[in-house]
Design a protein around this nucleic acid. Structure first.
Lengths: 301, 301
DNA sequence: CACCGTGCATAAGCGATGCTGATGTACATG
DNA sequence: CATGTACATCAGCATCGCTTATGCACGGTG
């Protein structure tokens, strides 16, 4: 008889490895240390393998493997619950928008202004997050609508992680640009080729600019060696680094043009910066209004 | 405090809706009808909504929504368990290969022959399945290796559902062809354009030929109206239908050429029939041998 | 080297959970 | 209106999963 692993045990397992301690996990979860010990023991008995090395607390190979599954599983569980909860109580005057930084450019800001002028008094919240976190927020109901940006071939969709049933719609396609410092030899060009820049010094800023591994994938070329890592959603700081010559960053042209530095369009390969609207199955209220507004006025090329 | 939905309840829920009956689900799961009733009641209490309409048994809107999540969740749970189980007991003389029908063409068959001649006596099993079922079998450990076929732009990967961490490798790219009956007006052409065939009569055979909705997506064109549906993994029967004039089917050229009828290469849009090897993180034994054999000799163009 | 502190494991106890079997109830059928 | 079917509910009981208390292994310290 096949037993299913109890999600509570999985959650405890994740907490233990996150905290690298049984007792810390226990207090974080509101359990006693004893309960956590029993949870881990139960999981290990169920799977027939030791999952956690003790003293120091660390994953065994099997535990590491389970760690590739458990967080995604728990997230999907939350997503399912949120999806159903959404059916019943929707707030008609609140709108929470989750945004990856480069998605909130002039085009989207204008659509938001348009919504605020037409609609009844609106309680608007914008959450700036990394790309995956935007999807998470939309799926778990922390946001009503998401805007994710990325780079792709013209009219190709972005590759988004599928954590559940969502609808994604093209919101805008903009020219892709590289942000140079003003004194850079290429800063006066009309356009650049990404393939000429594979060995340049890039800033790895996966939450704001286009991630370097995405550039590699979409150019089908190795290269783009990371020199500096910039975490977080602070576009201003990224631009400061880039214009000070610490490295290059790929951004949408309209937004990059407002950041200082020299924003040079990418000519080759043929790529566009794309913004996609992510929402759950059936948006209602202001979420639907904004979705219509954005896709209706979609600046697709 | 956030409770996680118990997978046992979800499994019961799925069984109830599959059987459209509480008592049938009960006996299928080895429970009493009373237990099933309590399971559904518990889920409904937990989510705060009625999920199942009784008499007749049918999903409510919320229940339908949950049905979009629950089977995938249960599958992922199995995948995680299988992934860990694989770490310990691997059979060094057995090899189970899951294959979508059009993936097992001359190229792969030859690699298999090569493996059987070099290796120790090998207990080989080939399972022919639909594309999604191949992935499922690999992830849940029912197969050691999977071969999935599909159509994509040259050197683009196939869009596979992500049910967990897998490795996919290009195994072969072959010319895409359309299978015509000999007396078809286009059967003597050197090549055809898919865009000229959007209104032709097609056979919808999603488990064998390229699915029609995939053709639509990859051509970015509506059309390809389905006239006949052909389910299952029987390529011979599909070919019989196609050559008898019941409709067209898209298949890889090398395989289509062996099926009778006129296999005409697709010239435009530029597409290839692609075969990908799907395996879990670290294949061992004959699985690894075959993987090396196939990707080493990969007929990429 | 004895001592003690830290941190996970184990034991005992007890309320809550989740089954089964029996019974209740609503609805359809003849 | 009687009967059968199918889901709901109830009572009882075994098991589960938590807590508190205690045990044990290891590491640092005077």
């Amino acid at each position: 008889m096949l037993m299913y692993m109890d999600p509570h045990l999985l959650r405890t397992f994740v907490a233990v490895l996150d905290h690298r301690s049984f007792s810390a996990a226990a207090s974080a979860l509101g359990y006693t240390q004893s309960a956590v010990s029993q949870h881990i023991a139960a999981l290990e008995a169920d799977l027939g393998t030791r999952l956690v090395e003790r003293r120091p607390v660390a994953p065994t190979p099997a535990g590491a493997r389970l760690m590739e599954h458990a967080p995604a599983l728990l997230l999907r569980l939350d997503v399912a619950r949120a999806d159903i909860a959404r059916l019943h109580h929707t707030h008609p005057t609140r709108l929470t928008l989750a945004c990856s930084p480069a998605a909130l450019g002039p085009a989207i800001a204008q659509a938001l202004a348009c919504l605020r002028s037409t609609a009844h008094p609106l309680d608007l919240e914008v959450r700036m997050l990394g790309r995956e976190a935007v999807i998470e927020d939309v799926l778990t109901g922390r946001a009503d609508l998401g805007l994710v940006d990325g780079v792709a071939a013209p009219s190709d969709p972005l590759p988004l992680p599928d954590l559940g049933p969502t609808t994604t719609l093209a919101a805008a396609e903009e020219t892709l640009a590289v942000l140079f410092p003003h004194n850079h030899p290429l800063a006066l060009r009309r356009s650049v080729r990404l393939t000429d820049l594979t060995q340049a010094q890039w800033i790895d800023a996966p939450d704001t600019a286009i991630p370097l591994d995405r550039l590699r994938a979409v150019c089908r070329i190795d290269g783009f060696p990371p020199r500096i890592r910039h975490r977080g959603t602070d576009l201003h700081g990224l631009a400061a680094l880039a214009t000070a010559g610490h490295g290059l960053a790929a951004l949408p042209l309209p937004l990059a043009a407002t950041l200082g530095g020299a924003a040079i369009p990418v000519k080759e390969p043929r790529l566009v910066h794309r913004i996609e609207l992510v929402h759950p199955a059936n948006p209602t209220g202001p979420a639907r209004q904004l979705a219509d507004l954005i896709t209706g006025a979609a600046v697709v090329q």
